[in-house]
Structure formats: structure tokens, C-alpha cells
Nucleic acid binder design. Structure first.
Length: 645
DNA sequence: TTAGGGTTAG
């Protein structure tokens, strides 16, 4: 094995191993000491050191001295990296190595090894730091600017803040003169690590040393600010660039756009995007991808699709991720067919589909109630050699559950277990929900208790729902408590399920208590939770209280748009027309809705409740119509008249 | 230098 590795290395760069060219300041391995080599070092013995490894003062010398050094992995670097893999005796081994081959450890050598540290196969950051620390302790050696720059770059990859601060403080105390390369690298590293304070120190130091920021410097700075959510500061930098010598380029724009997207301001991102055209900055695929991703996350699938078409028009390369977003968006909007068309288009253009795209399409078709097509795609995907993963299987199990094919879902679940597919909470929540909806609550409970992965709020919620709907409300409430004990967040769904359940059992005060608890926890009510509360209160005869609660929600900026409609509907459905009419009158008196709308709501509610006679009567009457020119309701015929006359 | 997937609930 070992020989096979060394042989090609020695034959590809034979000049390096010519012993006549050895330079005097590199001590030669003592052939007598061969037997004393530690085990790891045995591979070193047949190879003398390359002649170009000299104690240079500057990294660039080292890299350029040997013409092939950038193209060919240098045998020295490979050796050191091999050595760096052996973590246990790293420091001793390094010391041994140095004594064998080098009179003095060259700074450039350390910098070069650090620069190439991505070639360390395992434990990169830890190993590189140990190497750096060891080097720092060697006699007659002192780290140069590059060494610090590289080690900070490496440490930033793992956000090892303690070590970064330690190294950076040491670095600052050395008073190196900053150059452009180092400033750029440090700004990029600190930017990626979210260390804005350090980043700005480098920026100032660079200016103090008379180094003018280049386009790269600006872009790294912008990216750093944006990554740490300092979007407004990034905006200022952008403005400075617009007015200055170094104008923003496509990367600057892309970074600014990313910043706006990150802070949820997609509108501004789009403005900047359109601005590019006006300023003759060519948009690229990254511009589009950034925007498309943001639109997708915001649920604006339409705009996502438009951007995709623009990409096609401009002849830009469409990355497969863009297809994922477009197809995924279409599927989410219930347009699986259109998604499929884009999919076929993609294949035609030579783009290879992937598991994610197939999964999105399968889910889309299943949600369109076209399970056959979904299963067909699942088959096609497998026949094309794509291995479904846990997400695909999760979709299959969920889809089968939702369409009532519970047994098949359970079979796939068993299949996945037998094939060691990572079973996640989605499998369980789908199956628990399926079992619960099929009235198999005991089995649902059993599955919940047997779960082989951490339970999330989805799992809790579906079981709480099953229990509450099957009359086991107290068990559901116990689960609600347990949820908190297990550190699983109670969500607006949890509260909605329980509030509905409690009202159905006429436990009104408890329901209201849960509502208050939800608000106290800072959970924003949704339309569904408001419906549960307001209709629950209405049905328990507390229409006024429901109205009061809704009034309180409005100033909190919570939309209660359809709440009155829902309340009128449930009252009609329960045959409590008098109360429904009273509520309708009340809504208008409070000036919440225009009378015409309430009229329509009322007519629809009566129809929905199967009370067609009253609906007709209302339609042909003047109830709710007729108010004077000032908009006063004095002259209006009240809804009460519908039942009183 | 900048972008990067799909699934689950009332």
C-alpha cells in the first residue's frame, strides 16, 4: 500500500529528489538513525526533502520557487499532512520531523501548511491549531502576518470564538503592517464568523496603513455586515461605493439583495434588483437564485416563477436548485401539473432531476388528490435509479394516510424500518394522525409511546387532536402538560385543538383560560384559533363576550376579518337565528362591516345551515339595506325584523 | 468574493 503510494510521487517529479541539488541549510536525514524512526515516520525514509523547501521569508517565494508546486501536491506538504493525521503524538512527531530535516523552521513553511490545511482529511481545525501552536513555540521562529491570517481563517470556519480572540489579540500586539491580501482575508473570515467588531478593527487598521480598499475588500465587508444582520450598515457602505471610486459590481448588488432578503425586506431587494438594469450592472444566476429563494420562503411562488422565466429569457444557466424552487412552488400552490411541465422541460434541457424535485412533485400530486400519479412518479423515480430518502418516504406515508390508505402507509413504514431508512417525526405524526382519524386511537397512542426519535410538536398535536375528538379530553390535557415538561413547544395548533375541545364539552372557563395562557406566552393567534374561540363563546351563549374579545384583538394588529362571519354562521347552523340577527345588527352598529357585506354573510349562513326559506326572505326584503346619506344606520331595517315579523 | 432542495397539524 505504502510503496504504491510513494512510487508515482517519486516518478512524477524526479528532479526534486536529485540528491546533488540539496541545499546546505537543510540537514540530511541520517541513514544510521533509520531504525530509530517512529512508526509513523517509516514512510519518510526513502524520500529526501525537496530542495525548494528553504527558509524563505516570504510565502510567495515558497510557492513560486518550484514551478510545479501549485499544480502538483508537494511531497513535503503531503508528508506533513500525513503527519498531521496522526493526532496523538502530533507535537513530538513534528519536533522529530523538524530535527531530522530542518535547521530552522521556516515561517513560510508554516504559512504554506496552514494555507493548504483543507487537505487535512479529518479534524482539520483542531489539527491546524495544534500545528500553529507548536510552531509558535519553536526556537528562533515567529509567526508572520500570513500565519495569523490563515489560522484565523481556519478557526472562523468552526466559529471557535475563544481561540480566534486569543490568536487575534496576539496578532494585534505584533503590530504587523496590513496589506491588501491579509486585510481582505481577515475581513472575509471575521465576516463569516459574525465577528463585526474584529472586522471593523481590520478595516480601520488597513486604512491607517494607507491600504486602499479594493472591490474585493468592499464586497467582503458587505458580506460580513450582511451575515451579521447589519443590513443598514451594509446599505451605508453600498452608498459610499456608489459615490466613490470603486463602484458596486454584481457581487456587491447580490450581497445587498441577500441582506434585504435576510431581513425580510424582499420588496427592497426587488427594487435593488431592478436598479441593476438601470445602472448597467449585469444580473447573474446568483442574483436570481437569491431572490427566488427569498420569494419561495415567503410563499410568493408567482414571483419565483416569473424570475425563472426571466432567467430563461436572458439565457442564463438555470441551476437545478432553481428548478426545485419553481417546481416546489407550483406544487405548493396546487399546480402539480404545471410543476410537471417545468419538470419535463428541465429534462429536455439536459438538467438532471434529483430526489428533492421528485419528492416535491409526488407531494404535489398527492395533495391534488391524484395519488395514482403520485405513486407513478414514485415508481418512475426508482426505476431511473434515484434512491428515495426519508423525506420521499415521509411524503409517501403521509399521502397514503391522508387518502385513507392506512394499511399501505403502515406497510411502507415497516419497509423503511427494515431498510434502515432514518425514521423521523414526520412518519410518526402522519401515522398517528391517520390512526386517530380512522378511530384507532389506542394504536395511535401506542405508536406515540414507542417512537424511536424525539417527539416534536406535530406528533403531540395530532395525538392531542385524536384524543380530544374521541372524547378523551382529559388525556389530551395531560398530554398538553407533558409536552411542556418534555421541552416541546406548545403551538397555536395545540391551543386551538384544546380550546375547540373544551368548548364542545362546555368547559368554557377552561377554554378561556387556555386562550389567555396562549396570549401570555406571546403566541400570535391565527384565524383558526380566533374562530375556535369566538364560535365557542357564541355557542355557549356569550356573543357579547366574543365581540369584546375580538375588539381587544384588533388593536394588537391581529386580523379578525372573518370572525364575525364565522360567528353568524355557527349561530345559524345551530338554529339560533335570533342571536345571529342580533349579532349582525351589532356588527353594523359597531361600524365593523358595511351592511351589504353583512347581508351577504347572513344570506350565505342561512343557506349553509339549510334554512333556505329565511335566506330567500332576507334576499327579497329590505333588511340591512337603506341608510341615509350621512351613512347613519338610523333608517336601516334591522336584521331582528327577519325573525320578529 | 455572492445563491443553493423536498415532507408533517387545527
Amino acid at each position: 500500500m505504502r510503496k504504491a503510494h510513494l512510487k508515482p510521487l517519486a516518478t512524477t517529479i524526479p528532479a526534486i529528489f536529485n540528491s546533488h541539488h540539496r541545499l546546505p541549510f537543510i540537514s540530511l536525514p541520517n541513514s544510521n538513525s533509520h531504525s530509530s524512526f517512529p512508526k509513523w515516520a517509516s514512510f519518510l525514509s526513502p524520500l529526501p526533502p525537496p530542495e525548494w523547501v528553504q527558509p524563505f521569508n516570504d510565502l510567495s517565494d515558497l510557492v513560486t520557487t518550484h514551478p510545479k508546486s501549485e499544480l502538483q501536491p508537494s511531497p513535503w506538504v503531503s508528508r506533513i499532512h500525513k503527519l498531521l493525521q496522526n493526532n496523538t503524538n502530533l507535537e513530538q512527531d513534528l519536533t522529530f520531523f523538524c530535527k531530522k530535516y530542518l535547521i530552522k523552521l521556516p515561517t513560510s513553511f508554516v504559512a504554506y501548511i496552514l494555507k493548504k490545511s483543507d487537505e487535512i482529511p479529518t479534524n482539520r481545525v483542531e489539527t491546524a491549531f495544534r500545528f500553529f501552536t507548536w510552531a509558535g513555540k519553536q526556537k528562533g521562529y515567529a509567526h508572520n502576518l500570513e500565519c495569523y491570517v490563515f489560522i484565523i481563517e481556519i478557526l472562523c470556519l468552526e466559529s471557535d470564538f475563544d481561540r480566534i480572540k486569543l490568536v487575534f489579540n496576539e496578532f494585534k500586539s505584533k503590530g504587523f503592517l496590513m496589506n491588501e491580501y491579509s486585510a481582505n482575508s481577515l475581513i472575509r473570515s471575521f465576516g463569516n464568523g459574525g465577528m463585526v467588531e474584529e472586522l471593523l478593527w481590520v478595516w480601520r487598521k488597513m486604512k491607517d496603513n494607507g491600504v486602499e480598499p479594493s472591490l474585493y475588500t468592499y464586497n467582503f465587508l458587505m458580506n460580513g455586515l450582511v451575515s451579521s444582520n447589519f443590513v443598514e450598515s451594509a446599505e451605508r457602505v453600498f452608498e459610499v461605493m456608489e459615490k466613490g471610486k470603486v463602484k458596486p459590481d454584481v457581487v456587491t448588488y447580490n450581497t445587498m439583495i441577500k441582506g434585504y432578503c435576510k431581513s425580510g425586506n424582499v420588496k427592497k431587494a426587488v427594487e435593488r434588483f431592478r436598479d441593476m438594469e438601470a445602472r448597467n450592472v449585469e444580473t447573474d444566476k446568483i442574483t436570481y437564485m437569491t431572490l427566488m429563494q427569498a420569494c419561495y420562503s415567503e410563499g410568493d411562488y408567482d414571483f419565483c416563477l416569473r424570475l425563472y422565466h426571466e432567467m430563461l429569457e436572458k439565457g442564463l444557466e438555470v441551476p437545478s436548485h432553481a428548478y426545485s424552487l419553481v417546481i416546489g412552488g407550483l406544487c405548493k400552490e396546487g399546480k402539480a401539473m404545471e410543476g410537471c411541465m417545468v419538470f419535463e422541460n428541465m429534462i429536455e434541457k439536459g438538467s438532471r432531476p434529483n430526489v428533492a424535485i421528485y419528492t416535491a412533485l409526488i407531494d404535489g400530486y398527492a395533495k391534488n388528490r391524484n395519488l395514482d400519479m403520485a405513486m407513478g412518479l414514485f415508481e418512475r423515480m426508482r426505476s431511473e435509479g434515484f434512491e428515495p430518502d426519508e423525506v420521499t418516504y415521509g411524503v409517501i406515508v403521509n399521502s397514503l394516510c391522508k387518502s385513507g390508505r392506512l394499511e399501505e402507509a403502515l406497510q411502507w413504514f415497516e419497509y423503511c424500518k427494515s431498510k434502515n431508512v432514518a425514521i423521523n417525526a414526520v412518519f410518526y405524526s402522519s401515522l398517528i394522525d391517520g390512526l386517530g382519524k380512522a378511530g384507532r386511537v389506542n394504536e395511535a397512542e401506542k405508536l406515540f409511546e414507542e417512537m424511536g426519535c424525539p417527539r416534536d410538536s406535530y406528533c403531540y398535536n395530532v395525538l392531542i387532536d385524536s384524543l380530544s375528538k374521541s372524547g378523551k379530553l382529559d388525556e389530551a390535557l395531560a398530554l398538553f402538560e407533558r409536552m411542556e415538561d418534555e421541552g416541546c413547544d406548545q403551538t397555536v395548533y395545540t391551543f386551538t385543538i384544546l380550546i375547540s375541545g373544551l368548548f364542545k364539552k362546555h368547559r368554557n372557563e377552561e377554554a378561556l383560560k387556555l386562550w389567555d395562557m396562549m396570549i401570555d406566552k406571546g403566541i400570535t393567534p391565527t384565524a383558526a384559533s380566533i374562530r375556535a374561540l369566538s364560535t365557542g363563546l357564541c355557542l355557549s351563549g356569550k356573543v357579547a363576550r366574543a365581540c369584546k374579545l375580538l375588539e381587544e384583538l384588533a388593536p394588537m394588529g391581529i386580523v379578525v376579518e372573518t370572525a364575525f362571519e364565522d360567528m353568524i354562521s355557527v349561530l345559524c347552523k345551530a338554529g339560533r337565528i335570533v342571536e345571529a340577527c342580533k349579532l349582525a345588527d351589532g356588527v353594523i352598529v359597531r361600524g365593523r362591516e358595511i351592511p351589504g357585506r353583512v347581508r351577504t354573510v347572513m344570506i350565505n349562513a342561512l343557506r349553509k345551515a339549510g334554512n333556505a326559506d329565511l335566506a330567500m326572505k332576507l334576499m327579497h326584503s329590505k333588511i340591512g339595506i337603506g341608510y341615509d346619506r350621512k351613512g347613519s344606520v338610523k333608517k336601516r331595517v334591522k336584521f331582528r325584523n327577519l325573525v320578529e315579523s
